[in-house]
Amino acid sequence: MTTALVGLSHSPLIGKNDPDPDKLARIDAAVKNARAFVRKFDPELVVLYAPDHYNGFFYKEMPPFCLATEAHAIGDFGSQAGPLSVDSAAARSLAQSTLDRGIDLTVSARMIVDHGFVQPLEVLFGGIDRVPVVPIFINGVATPLGPLHRIRSFGTAIGESIAALDKRVLFIASGGLSHDPPVPTLDGAPPRVADALIEGHAPTPEQRAKGEERVLQAGRDYAAGIATMIPINPTWDNHVLDTFENADLAAIDDWTVQWMGTEGGGSAHEVRTWIAAYASLAATGKYRTLSRFYEPVPEWIAGFAVTTAVEDEHR
Protein backbone atom coordinates (compact mmCIF):
# COMPACT_ATOMS: atom_id res chain seq x y z
CA MET A 1 0.00 0.00 0.00
CA THR A 2 1.19 3.50 -0.92
CA THR A 3 -0.69 6.71 -0.16
CA ALA A 4 -0.59 10.36 -1.22
CA LEU A 5 -2.76 13.45 -0.90
CA VAL A 6 -3.98 16.45 -2.87
CA GLY A 7 -5.79 19.31 -1.17
CA LEU A 8 -7.70 21.44 -3.66
CA SER A 9 -10.09 24.32 -3.11
CA HIS A 10 -13.12 24.52 -5.36
CA SER A 11 -15.46 27.29 -6.48
CA PRO A 12 -18.49 27.32 -8.78
CA LEU A 13 -17.22 30.67 -10.10
CA ILE A 14 -14.06 29.27 -11.69
CA GLY A 15 -14.14 30.12 -15.38
CA LYS A 16 -17.10 32.44 -14.85
CA ASN A 17 -15.73 35.26 -12.72
CA ASP A 18 -11.95 34.90 -12.83
CA PRO A 19 -9.25 37.07 -11.21
CA ASP A 20 -6.65 39.09 -13.11
CA PRO A 21 -4.48 37.19 -15.64
CA ASP A 22 -1.35 37.16 -13.46
CA LYS A 23 -3.13 35.65 -10.46
CA LEU A 24 -4.98 33.20 -12.69
CA ALA A 25 -1.67 32.12 -14.23
CA ARG A 26 -0.22 31.41 -10.77
CA ILE A 27 -3.27 29.36 -9.87
CA ASP A 28 -3.14 27.47 -13.16
CA ALA A 29 0.53 26.65 -12.56
CA ALA A 30 -0.24 25.27 -9.09
CA VAL A 31 -3.09 23.16 -10.45
CA LYS A 32 -0.90 21.93 -13.31
CA ASN A 33 1.71 20.88 -10.75
CA ALA A 34 -0.91 18.94 -8.79
CA ARG A 35 -2.13 17.29 -11.99
CA ALA A 36 1.42 16.18 -12.81
CA PHE A 37 1.83 14.87 -9.27
CA VAL A 38 -1.33 12.79 -9.60
CA ARG A 39 -0.30 11.48 -13.00
CA LYS A 40 3.08 10.37 -11.64
CA PHE A 41 1.53 8.76 -8.55
CA ASP A 42 -0.99 6.94 -10.78
CA PRO A 43 -3.54 6.03 -8.09
CA GLU A 44 -5.45 2.78 -8.23
CA LEU A 45 -8.11 4.28 -5.97
CA VAL A 46 -9.15 7.80 -4.97
CA VAL A 47 -10.79 8.52 -1.62
CA LEU A 48 -12.51 11.84 -2.21
CA TYR A 49 -13.64 13.97 0.74
CA ALA A 50 -16.01 16.76 -0.31
CA PRO A 51 -18.90 18.83 1.02
CA ASP A 52 -22.39 19.41 -0.33
CA HIS A 53 -24.26 22.65 -0.91
CA TYR A 54 -27.84 21.47 -0.29
CA ASN A 55 -27.92 19.48 -3.51
CA GLY A 56 -27.63 15.96 -2.13
CA PHE A 57 -28.00 16.26 1.65
CA PHE A 58 -30.78 18.10 3.45
CA TYR A 59 -32.04 18.75 6.96
CA LYS A 60 -34.54 15.91 6.70
CA GLU A 61 -31.49 13.72 7.36
CA MET A 62 -28.12 15.44 7.75
CA PRO A 63 -25.25 13.13 8.70
CA PRO A 64 -21.88 14.58 9.76
CA PHE A 65 -20.23 12.31 7.18
CA CYS A 66 -21.40 9.68 4.72
CA LEU A 67 -19.62 7.19 2.44
CA ALA A 68 -21.09 6.28 -0.95
CA THR A 69 -21.18 2.89 -2.61
CA GLU A 70 -22.75 4.58 -5.65
CA ALA A 71 -22.89 8.27 -6.58
CA HIS A 72 -24.42 10.48 -9.27
CA ALA A 73 -23.47 14.09 -10.05
CA ILE A 74 -26.23 16.62 -10.75
CA GLY A 75 -24.17 18.90 -13.01
CA ASP A 76 -24.63 22.22 -11.21
CA PHE A 77 -22.76 25.36 -12.38
CA GLY A 78 -21.86 23.62 -15.64
CA SER A 79 -20.00 20.76 -13.96
CA GLN A 80 -20.16 17.27 -15.41
CA ALA A 81 -23.33 15.29 -14.69
CA GLY A 82 -23.71 11.54 -14.45
CA PRO A 83 -22.45 8.57 -12.45
CA LEU A 84 -19.09 8.63 -10.72
CA SER A 85 -16.90 5.55 -11.25
CA VAL A 86 -17.33 4.35 -7.68
CA ASP A 87 -15.37 1.28 -6.61
CA SER A 88 -18.29 -0.26 -4.76
CA ALA A 89 -16.31 -3.21 -3.39
CA ALA A 90 -13.64 -0.91 -1.94
CA ALA A 91 -16.34 1.40 -0.59
CA ARG A 92 -18.12 -1.43 1.20
CA SER A 93 -14.82 -2.70 2.61
CA LEU A 94 -13.88 0.75 3.91
CA ALA A 95 -17.34 1.26 5.39
CA GLN A 96 -17.29 -2.02 7.30
CA SER A 97 -13.73 -1.55 8.53
CA THR A 98 -14.50 2.00 9.67
CA LEU A 99 -17.61 0.85 11.53
CA ASP A 100 -15.55 -1.90 13.14
CA ARG A 101 -13.27 0.83 14.49
CA GLY A 102 -16.15 2.40 16.41
CA ILE A 103 -17.04 5.22 14.02
CA ASP A 104 -20.77 5.76 13.46
CA LEU A 105 -20.52 6.03 9.70
CA THR A 106 -23.53 6.60 7.45
CA VAL A 107 -23.52 4.78 4.10
CA SER A 108 -25.38 5.85 0.97
CA ALA A 109 -26.17 3.39 -1.82
CA ARG A 110 -27.21 6.26 -4.11
CA MET A 111 -25.47 9.50 -3.17
CA ILE A 112 -26.24 12.71 -5.05
CA VAL A 113 -23.19 14.98 -5.37
CA ASP A 114 -22.53 18.43 -6.79
CA HIS A 115 -19.59 20.52 -7.98
CA GLY A 116 -17.74 20.01 -4.69
CA PHE A 117 -17.11 16.39 -5.69
CA VAL A 118 -16.97 16.90 -9.44
CA GLN A 119 -14.48 19.76 -9.75
CA PRO A 120 -11.43 17.91 -8.34
CA LEU A 121 -12.15 14.90 -10.53
CA GLU A 122 -12.48 17.12 -13.59
CA VAL A 123 -9.40 19.18 -12.74
CA LEU A 124 -7.07 16.34 -11.77
CA PHE A 125 -8.31 13.51 -14.01
CA GLY A 126 -10.32 15.14 -16.79
CA GLY A 127 -13.69 13.69 -15.78
CA ILE A 128 -15.79 11.91 -13.19
CA ASP A 129 -15.37 8.47 -14.73
CA ARG A 130 -11.58 8.26 -15.20
CA VAL A 131 -10.48 6.67 -11.92
CA PRO A 132 -12.04 4.36 -9.30
CA VAL A 133 -13.25 6.50 -6.44
CA VAL A 134 -14.83 6.24 -2.99
CA PRO A 135 -16.81 9.47 -2.44
CA ILE A 136 -17.16 10.63 1.17
CA PHE A 137 -19.42 13.53 2.09
CA ILE A 138 -18.33 15.76 4.99
CA ASN A 139 -20.93 18.24 6.24
CA GLY A 140 -19.39 21.71 6.32
CA VAL A 141 -22.46 23.93 6.04
CA ALA A 142 -25.52 22.66 7.88
CA THR A 143 -25.59 23.49 11.59
CA PRO A 144 -25.32 22.16 14.21
CA LEU A 145 -21.76 21.00 13.55
CA GLY A 146 -19.88 18.55 15.75
CA PRO A 147 -16.42 18.96 17.27
CA LEU A 148 -13.39 18.81 15.02
CA HIS A 149 -11.81 15.87 16.82
CA ARG A 150 -14.62 13.68 15.51
CA ILE A 151 -13.64 14.51 11.92
CA ARG A 152 -10.00 13.75 12.69
CA SER A 153 -10.98 10.42 14.28
CA PHE A 154 -13.10 9.57 11.26
CA GLY A 155 -10.29 10.35 8.83
CA THR A 156 -7.90 8.30 10.94
CA ALA A 157 -10.24 5.31 10.83
CA ILE A 158 -10.51 5.53 7.04
CA GLY A 159 -6.72 5.73 6.76
CA GLU A 160 -6.26 2.71 9.00
CA SER A 161 -8.82 0.81 6.94
CA ILE A 162 -7.02 1.53 3.66
CA ALA A 163 -4.25 -0.94 4.49
CA ALA A 164 -6.52 -3.92 3.83
CA LEU A 165 -7.05 -2.80 0.22
CA ASP A 166 -3.36 -3.07 -0.78
CA LYS A 167 -3.64 -0.32 -3.43
CA ARG A 168 -2.02 2.97 -4.34
CA VAL A 169 -4.53 5.33 -2.75
CA LEU A 170 -4.84 9.07 -3.31
CA PHE A 171 -6.74 11.07 -0.70
CA ILE A 172 -8.33 14.24 -2.09
CA ALA A 173 -9.70 17.08 0.03
CA SER A 174 -12.09 19.36 -1.83
CA GLY A 175 -13.13 22.72 -0.42
CA GLY A 176 -12.15 25.62 1.79
CA LEU A 177 -10.45 27.61 2.87
CA SER A 178 -11.90 30.84 4.33
CA HIS A 179 -15.00 31.87 2.43
CA ASP A 180 -18.48 33.17 3.12
CA PRO A 181 -20.62 32.58 0.03
CA PRO A 182 -24.39 33.20 -0.04
CA VAL A 183 -25.39 29.74 1.17
CA PRO A 184 -28.88 29.68 2.71
CA THR A 185 -29.35 28.88 6.39
CA LEU A 186 -32.29 27.17 8.05
CA ASP A 187 -32.46 29.55 11.00
CA GLY A 188 -34.73 32.42 10.05
CA ALA A 189 -35.40 31.11 6.55
CA PRO A 190 -38.82 31.90 5.04
CA PRO A 191 -41.15 28.88 4.80
CA ARG A 192 -40.44 28.14 1.12
CA VAL A 193 -36.68 28.18 1.62
CA ALA A 194 -36.89 26.23 4.86
CA ASP A 195 -38.98 23.56 3.16
CA ALA A 196 -36.41 23.25 0.37
CA LEU A 197 -33.55 22.94 2.87
CA ILE A 198 -35.40 20.28 4.82
CA GLU A 199 -37.09 18.23 2.13
CA GLY A 200 -34.64 18.71 -0.71
CA HIS A 201 -37.15 19.40 -3.45
CA ALA A 202 -35.30 19.55 -6.76
CA PRO A 203 -35.36 23.09 -8.19
CA THR A 204 -36.76 23.75 -11.62
CA PRO A 205 -34.20 24.67 -14.29
CA GLU A 206 -35.34 28.27 -13.95
CA GLN A 207 -34.90 28.24 -10.16
CA ARG A 208 -31.45 26.65 -10.45
CA ALA A 209 -30.37 29.20 -13.06
CA LYS A 210 -31.62 32.03 -10.84
CA GLY A 211 -29.73 30.65 -7.83
CA GLU A 212 -26.52 30.25 -9.80
CA GLU A 213 -26.79 33.80 -11.15
CA ARG A 214 -27.20 35.02 -7.56
CA VAL A 215 -23.91 33.35 -6.62
CA LEU A 216 -22.19 34.81 -9.68
CA GLN A 217 -23.40 38.31 -8.80
CA ALA A 218 -22.20 37.80 -5.23
CA GLY A 219 -18.74 37.05 -6.61
CA ARG A 220 -18.79 40.26 -8.64
CA ASP A 221 -19.90 42.29 -5.62
CA TYR A 222 -17.34 40.60 -3.38
CA ALA A 223 -14.48 41.38 -5.76
CA ALA A 224 -15.71 44.97 -6.05
CA GLY A 225 -15.67 45.36 -2.27
CA ILE A 226 -19.38 46.11 -1.95
CA ALA A 227 -20.54 42.82 -0.43
CA THR A 228 -21.38 42.30 3.24
CA MET A 229 -19.90 38.81 3.41
CA ILE A 230 -17.02 38.05 5.80
CA PRO A 231 -13.69 38.86 4.09
CA ILE A 232 -11.22 36.18 3.05
CA ASN A 233 -8.73 35.68 5.90
CA PRO A 234 -5.23 34.85 4.57
CA THR A 235 -3.79 34.79 8.11
CA TRP A 236 -6.23 32.12 9.19
CA ASP A 237 -5.89 30.22 5.93
CA ASN A 238 -2.13 30.02 6.30
CA HIS A 239 -2.46 28.96 9.92
CA VAL A 240 -4.62 26.07 8.73
CA LEU A 241 -2.12 25.17 6.01
CA ASP A 242 0.78 25.39 8.51
CA THR A 243 -1.03 22.90 10.72
CA PHE A 244 -1.28 20.40 7.88
CA GLU A 245 2.24 20.99 6.60
CA ASN A 246 3.71 20.52 10.08
CA ALA A 247 1.59 17.41 10.66
CA ASP A 248 0.37 19.02 13.89
CA LEU A 249 -3.04 17.41 13.55
CA ALA A 250 -3.61 16.96 17.28
CA ALA A 251 -3.81 20.76 17.57
CA ILE A 252 -7.02 20.63 15.52
CA ASP A 253 -8.83 19.10 18.49
CA ASP A 254 -8.69 22.53 20.14
CA TRP A 255 -10.32 24.31 17.20
CA THR A 256 -13.92 25.25 17.93
CA VAL A 257 -16.90 25.53 15.62
CA GLN A 258 -17.40 29.18 16.60
CA TRP A 259 -13.73 30.08 16.08
CA MET A 260 -13.67 28.60 12.60
CA GLY A 261 -16.81 30.45 11.55
CA THR A 262 -15.64 33.75 13.00
CA GLU A 263 -12.20 33.54 11.44
CA GLY A 264 -13.03 31.87 8.16
CA GLY A 265 -16.65 32.66 7.34
CA GLY A 266 -19.83 30.66 7.00
CA SER A 267 -18.32 27.96 4.77
CA ALA A 268 -14.93 27.69 6.46
CA HIS A 269 -16.03 24.32 7.77
CA GLU A 270 -15.32 22.86 4.34
CA VAL A 271 -11.83 22.66 5.86
CA ARG A 272 -13.22 19.55 7.54
CA THR A 273 -12.59 17.72 4.27
CA TRP A 274 -8.91 18.64 4.57
CA ILE A 275 -8.81 17.50 8.19
CA ALA A 276 -10.27 14.12 7.24
CA ALA A 277 -7.91 13.68 4.29
CA TYR A 278 -4.76 14.63 6.21
CA ALA A 279 -5.80 12.43 9.13
CA SER A 280 -6.23 9.55 6.69
CA LEU A 281 -2.77 10.13 5.24
CA ALA A 282 -1.20 10.44 8.71
CA ALA A 283 -2.84 7.17 9.76
CA THR A 284 -0.77 5.34 7.14
CA GLY A 285 2.49 6.76 8.55
CA LYS A 286 4.52 9.95 8.64
CA TYR A 287 4.09 12.22 5.63
CA ARG A 288 5.82 15.20 4.06
CA THR A 289 4.46 18.09 2.03
CA LEU A 290 5.76 18.38 -1.53
CA SER A 291 4.00 21.56 -2.59
CA ARG A 292 1.85 24.30 -1.11
CA PHE A 293 0.11 27.12 -2.93
CA TYR A 294 -2.25 29.78 -1.63
CA GLU A 295 -3.96 32.87 -3.02
CA PRO A 296 -6.97 34.85 -1.76
CA VAL A 297 -9.36 35.08 -4.71
CA PRO A 298 -12.30 37.42 -4.02
CA GLU A 299 -13.69 36.77 -7.50
CA TRP A 300 -14.24 33.15 -6.45
CA ILE A 301 -15.26 34.11 -2.89
CA ALA A 302 -12.48 31.85 -1.62
CA GLY A 303 -9.11 31.53 -0.04
CA PHE A 304 -7.79 29.17 -2.70
CA ALA A 305 -5.19 26.53 -1.89
CA VAL A 306 -3.51 23.56 -3.57
CA THR A 307 -1.28 21.15 -1.66
CA THR A 308 0.37 17.80 -2.34
CA ALA A 309 1.81 15.37 0.18
CA VAL A 310 3.27 11.85 0.21
CA GLU A 311 4.39 9.22 2.64
CA ASP A 312 7.79 10.02 4.12
CA GLU A 313 10.19 7.36 2.85
CA HIS A 314 12.43 8.02 5.87
CA ARG A 315 9.75 7.28 8.41
Rank of each mutant, 00 (worst) to 15 (best):
S108K: 07
M111D: 09
M111A: 14
I112R: 14
D114E: 09
H115M: 10
G116T: 01
V118P: 08
Q119E: 13
L121I: 05
E122K: 13
I128N: 10
I128Y: 08
D129W: 01
D129T: 12
V131I: 11
P135C: 04
I138W: 05
N139L: 03
G140Y: 00
A142K: 07
P144Q: 02
L145S: 02
G146W: 11
L148G: 05
H149N: 11
I151M: 11
I151L: 08
R152W: 04
F154I: 01
G159V: 02
G159W: 01
I162Y: 06
A163L: 08
K167G: 11
R168M: 14
V169F: 03
F171N: 11
F171D: 05
S174H: 04
G175C: 04
G176P: 00
L177M: 13
H179G: 08
H179V: 11
D180V: 02
D180Q: 07
V183W: 11
V183I: 15
L186A: 05
A189S: 15
P190F: 06
P191Y: 04
R192S: 13
R192P: 09
V193Y: 09
V193T: 15
D195R: 14
D195N: 10
D195K: 13
A196N: 12
E199L: 09
P203Y: 02
P205Y: 05
P205I: 02
R208Q: 15
